[in-house]
Protein backbone atom coordinates (compact mmCIF):
# COMPACT_ATOMS: atom_id res chain seq x y z
CA UNK A 1 0.00 0.00 0.00
CA UNK A 2 1.84 3.14 -1.05
CA UNK A 3 -0.02 5.45 1.39
CA UNK A 4 0.80 3.08 4.29
CA UNK A 5 4.45 2.92 3.42
CA UNK A 6 4.76 6.60 4.23
CA UNK A 7 3.29 6.15 7.73
CA UNK A 8 5.12 4.93 10.82
CA UNK A 9 4.48 1.39 12.08
CA UNK A 10 2.70 1.71 15.44
CA UNK A 11 2.17 -2.02 15.94
CA UNK A 12 4.48 -4.69 14.62
CA UNK A 13 3.81 -8.38 15.17
CA UNK A 14 6.32 -10.96 14.03
CA UNK A 15 5.64 -14.71 13.92
CA UNK A 16 3.50 -14.59 17.00
CA UNK A 17 2.32 -17.86 18.49
CA UNK A 18 -0.10 -17.94 21.38
CA UNK A 19 -0.96 -21.19 23.09
CA UNK A 20 -3.33 -21.78 25.98
CA UNK A 21 -2.99 -24.69 28.33
CA UNK A 22 -6.18 -26.43 29.34
CA UNK A 23 -5.04 -29.08 31.82
CA UNK A 24 -2.58 -31.13 29.75
CA UNK A 25 -4.00 -30.06 26.40
CA UNK A 26 -2.30 -27.25 24.51
CA UNK A 27 -4.75 -25.15 22.55
CA UNK A 28 -3.15 -22.97 19.87
CA UNK A 29 -4.95 -19.62 19.47
CA UNK A 30 -2.48 -17.94 17.10
CA UNK A 31 -0.07 -19.86 14.88
CA UNK A 32 2.65 -17.60 13.61
CA UNK A 33 0.86 -14.34 12.86
CA UNK A 34 2.85 -11.43 11.42
CA UNK A 35 1.28 -8.04 10.97
CA UNK A 36 2.19 -4.38 10.78
CA UNK A 37 -0.27 -1.63 11.66
CA UNK A 38 0.59 1.93 10.75
CA UNK A 39 -0.31 5.10 12.53
CA UNK A 40 -3.77 6.37 11.56
CA UNK A 41 -4.97 3.00 10.25
CA UNK A 42 -8.62 2.05 10.67
CA UNK A 43 -8.12 -1.68 10.69
CA UNK A 44 -10.73 -4.39 10.98
CA UNK A 45 -9.88 -7.91 12.09
CA UNK A 46 -12.51 -10.37 10.92
CA UNK A 47 -12.99 -14.06 11.23
CA UNK A 48 -15.24 -16.70 12.72
CA UNK A 49 -15.47 -17.37 16.46
CA UNK A 50 -12.30 -19.04 17.72
CA UNK A 51 -10.22 -17.71 14.87
CA UNK A 52 -7.98 -15.73 17.27
CA UNK A 53 -9.33 -12.16 16.86
CA UNK A 54 -9.65 -11.44 20.58
CA UNK A 55 -6.30 -13.10 21.32
CA UNK A 56 -4.62 -10.87 18.74
CA UNK A 57 -6.25 -7.76 20.24
CA UNK A 58 -5.21 -8.89 23.73
CA UNK A 59 -1.60 -9.15 22.64
CA UNK A 60 -1.65 -5.74 21.00
CA UNK A 61 -3.43 -4.33 24.04
CA UNK A 62 -0.68 -5.63 26.37
CA UNK A 63 -3.16 -7.51 28.49
CA UNK A 64 -1.66 -10.83 27.46
CA UNK A 65 1.76 -11.99 26.31
CA UNK A 66 2.72 -14.12 23.32
CA UNK A 67 4.03 -17.64 23.79
CA UNK A 68 6.54 -17.04 21.00
CA UNK A 69 7.28 -14.24 18.61
CA UNK A 70 7.52 -10.47 18.99
CA UNK A 71 4.82 -7.90 19.70
CA UNK A 72 6.01 -4.32 19.36
CA UNK A 73 3.64 -1.56 20.44
CA UNK A 74 4.68 2.03 19.87
CA UNK A 75 8.26 0.86 19.49
CA UNK A 76 8.35 -1.22 22.69
CA UNK A 77 8.74 -4.98 22.81
CA UNK A 78 5.96 -5.98 25.20
CA UNK A 79 7.73 -9.18 26.22
CA UNK A 80 10.48 -7.22 27.97
CA UNK A 81 8.15 -5.06 30.03
CA UNK A 82 7.12 -5.73 33.62
CA UNK A 83 3.57 -5.35 34.91
CA UNK A 84 3.96 -1.71 35.86
CA UNK A 85 5.50 -0.80 32.49
CA UNK A 86 2.73 -2.66 30.66
CA UNK A 87 0.13 -0.84 32.77
CA UNK A 88 1.74 2.50 31.94
CA UNK A 89 1.84 1.59 28.24
CA UNK A 90 -1.87 0.77 28.34
CA UNK A 91 -2.63 3.98 30.25
CA UNK A 92 -0.71 6.36 28.02
CA UNK A 93 -0.70 4.70 24.58
CA UNK A 94 -3.79 2.52 24.31
CA UNK A 95 -7.53 2.97 24.58
CA UNK A 96 -10.02 0.14 24.92
CA UNK A 97 -13.58 -0.28 23.73
CA UNK A 98 -15.32 -3.45 24.86
CA UNK A 99 -18.23 -5.38 23.41
CA UNK A 100 -20.14 -5.09 26.72
CA UNK A 101 -19.09 -1.46 27.26
CA UNK A 102 -17.50 -2.29 30.65
CA UNK A 103 -18.24 1.05 32.28
CA UNK A 104 -17.93 1.46 36.04
CA UNK A 105 -21.58 1.21 37.08
CA UNK A 106 -21.30 3.36 40.20
CA UNK A 107 -19.71 6.32 38.41
CA UNK A 108 -21.53 8.90 36.31
CA UNK A 109 -20.91 9.34 32.59
CA UNK A 110 -18.56 12.23 33.32
CA UNK A 111 -16.66 10.31 36.01
CA UNK A 112 -16.30 7.24 33.78
CA UNK A 113 -14.75 9.30 31.01
CA UNK A 114 -12.59 11.27 33.42
CA UNK A 115 -11.24 8.15 35.17
CA UNK A 116 -8.24 7.41 32.87
CA UNK A 117 -7.15 11.05 33.23
CA UNK A 118 -7.19 10.67 37.02
CA UNK A 119 -5.04 7.57 36.64
CA UNK A 120 -2.57 9.56 34.53
CA UNK A 121 -2.23 12.18 37.30
CA UNK A 122 -1.13 14.83 34.82
CA UNK A 123 -4.05 17.21 34.55
CA UNK A 124 -5.77 19.71 36.79
CA UNK A 125 -9.48 19.36 37.49
CA UNK A 126 -10.21 22.18 35.04
CA UNK A 127 -8.14 20.58 32.28
CA UNK A 128 -9.82 17.25 32.84
CA UNK A 129 -13.27 18.80 32.82
CA UNK A 130 -12.53 20.65 29.59
CA UNK A 131 -11.30 17.51 27.87
CA UNK A 132 -14.17 15.34 29.10
CA UNK A 133 -16.79 17.93 28.16
CA UNK A 134 -15.31 18.28 24.66
CA UNK A 135 -15.41 14.54 24.09
CA UNK A 136 -18.89 14.08 25.52
CA UNK A 137 -20.07 16.82 23.19
CA UNK A 138 -18.45 15.05 20.26
CA UNK A 139 -20.16 11.76 21.08
CA UNK A 140 -23.45 13.56 21.68
CA UNK A 141 -23.73 12.90 25.41
CA UNK A 142 -23.14 16.39 26.79
CA UNK A 143 -26.69 16.36 28.18
CA UNK A 144 -26.09 13.10 30.05
CA UNK A 145 -22.94 13.87 32.02
CA UNK A 146 -24.49 13.09 35.41
CA UNK A 147 -26.34 9.95 34.37
CA UNK A 148 -25.20 6.55 35.54
CA UNK A 149 -24.50 3.89 32.84
CA UNK A 150 -27.64 1.99 33.86
CA UNK A 151 -29.71 5.03 32.83
CA UNK A 152 -28.38 4.96 29.25
CA UNK A 153 -29.19 2.89 26.17
CA UNK A 154 -26.65 0.44 24.73
CA UNK A 155 -25.63 2.88 22.01
CA UNK A 156 -25.17 5.68 24.53
CA UNK A 157 -23.07 3.44 26.78
CA UNK A 158 -20.81 2.54 23.88
CA UNK A 159 -20.41 6.22 23.13
CA UNK A 160 -19.29 6.74 26.73
CA UNK A 161 -16.82 3.88 26.25
CA UNK A 162 -15.50 5.55 23.09
CA UNK A 163 -15.10 8.86 24.92
CA UNK A 164 -13.29 7.05 27.76
CA UNK A 165 -10.99 5.31 25.25
CA UNK A 166 -10.14 8.60 23.55
CA UNK A 167 -9.90 10.93 26.53
CA UNK A 168 -6.18 10.30 27.08
CA UNK A 169 -5.54 10.90 23.35
CA UNK A 170 -4.04 7.45 22.89
CA UNK A 171 -2.13 6.47 19.77
CA UNK A 172 -4.10 3.26 19.40
CA UNK A 173 -7.69 2.35 20.22
CA UNK A 174 -8.57 -1.32 20.39
CA UNK A 175 -12.21 -2.29 20.03
CA UNK A 176 -13.27 -5.88 20.48
CA UNK A 177 -16.57 -6.37 18.62
CA UNK A 178 -17.78 -2.89 19.58
CA UNK A 179 -21.09 -3.26 17.79
CA UNK A 180 -21.94 -6.83 18.77
CA UNK A 181 -24.41 -5.79 21.48
CA UNK A 182 -26.02 -3.03 19.45
CA UNK A 183 -28.72 -2.96 16.79
CA UNK A 184 -27.51 -2.44 13.21
CA UNK A 185 -28.35 1.28 12.99
CA UNK A 186 -26.73 2.09 16.33
CA UNK A 187 -23.76 -0.12 15.46
CA UNK A 188 -23.25 1.73 12.21
CA UNK A 189 -23.47 5.08 14.02
CA UNK A 190 -20.82 3.91 16.47
CA UNK A 191 -18.50 2.86 13.63
CA UNK A 192 -19.12 6.22 11.93
CA UNK A 193 -18.19 7.94 15.16
CA UNK A 194 -15.00 5.90 15.51
CA UNK A 195 -14.14 6.69 11.91
CA UNK A 196 -14.72 10.36 12.53
CA UNK A 197 -12.36 10.26 15.52
CA UNK A 198 -9.83 8.37 13.43
CA UNK A 199 -9.87 11.06 10.80
CA UNK A 200 -9.94 14.02 13.21
CA UNK A 201 -7.45 12.82 15.82
CA UNK A 202 -5.40 10.52 13.55
CA UNK A 203 -5.85 7.82 16.19
CA UNK A 204 -5.17 4.28 15.02
CA UNK A 205 -8.26 2.06 15.41
CA UNK A 206 -8.02 -1.72 15.44
CA UNK A 207 -11.32 -3.49 15.86
CA UNK A 208 -12.60 -6.98 15.53
CA UNK A 209 -16.02 -7.71 14.06
CA UNK A 210 -18.26 -10.33 12.51
CA UNK A 211 -20.42 -7.76 10.83
CA UNK A 212 -19.88 -7.30 7.09
CA UNK A 213 -21.45 -3.81 7.20
CA UNK A 214 -19.06 -2.75 9.90
CA UNK A 215 -15.98 -4.10 8.16
CA UNK A 216 -16.93 -2.21 5.04
CA UNK A 217 -16.02 1.01 6.89
CA UNK A 218 -12.44 -0.10 7.48
CA UNK A 219 -9.43 1.07 5.47
CA UNK A 220 -7.89 -2.35 5.84
CA UNK A 221 -9.23 -5.76 6.75
CA UNK A 222 -7.33 -8.71 8.21
CA UNK A 223 -9.05 -12.08 7.90
CA UNK A 224 -8.14 -14.65 10.51
CA UNK A 225 -8.93 -18.33 10.38
CA UNK A 226 -7.65 -21.03 12.75
CA UNK A 227 -5.12 -18.67 14.27
CA UNK A 228 -3.56 -17.62 10.98
CA UNK A 229 -4.01 -14.71 8.63
CA UNK A 230 -6.20 -16.16 5.90
CA UNK A 231 -6.19 -13.13 3.66
CA UNK A 232 -3.71 -10.30 3.66
CA UNK A 233 -4.28 -6.70 4.49
CA UNK A 234 -6.61 -5.18 1.91
CA UNK A 235 -8.18 -1.84 1.38
CA UNK A 236 -11.84 -1.89 2.23
CA UNK A 237 -14.56 -0.97 -0.15
CA UNK A 238 -15.96 2.34 0.95
CA UNK A 239 -12.78 4.35 1.52
Amino acid sequence: MPQHAEKTAIVSIQKVVKEYHLDKVVVPALRGVSLTVRQGDFLSIVGPSGSGKTTLLNLIGCVDTATRGTVMVDGQDTKGLNDRQLTDLRLHTLGFIFQSFNLVPVLSVFQNVEFPLLLQRKFTAAERAQRVDELLKKVGLDKHTQHRPSELSGGQRQRVAIARALVTRPKIVLADEPTANLDSVTGENIIDLMKEMNEEEKTTFIFSTHDAKVMSHANSVIRLADGKIAAGKAAAGRH
Partner: peptide, 16 residues
Protein backbone atom coordinates in the same frame (compact mmCIF):
# COMPACT_ATOMS: atom_id res chain seq x y z
CA UNK B 1 -14.10 -9.35 38.02
CA UNK B 2 -14.91 -7.69 34.72
CA UNK B 3 -14.77 -4.25 36.32
CA UNK B 4 -11.38 -5.02 37.87
CA UNK B 5 -10.08 -6.31 34.54
CA UNK B 6 -11.43 -3.28 32.72
CA UNK B 7 -9.84 -0.88 35.17
CA UNK B 8 -6.54 -2.75 34.94
CA UNK B 9 -6.82 -2.71 31.13
CA UNK B 10 -7.35 1.03 30.98
CA UNK B 11 -4.28 1.60 33.13
CA UNK B 12 -5.12 1.16 36.81
CA UNK B 13 -2.18 -0.14 38.79
CA UNK B 14 -2.39 -3.13 41.11
CA UNK B 15 -1.92 -0.93 44.17
CA UNK B 16 -4.96 1.14 43.20
Amino acid sequence: TREIGTLRAIGMRRRA
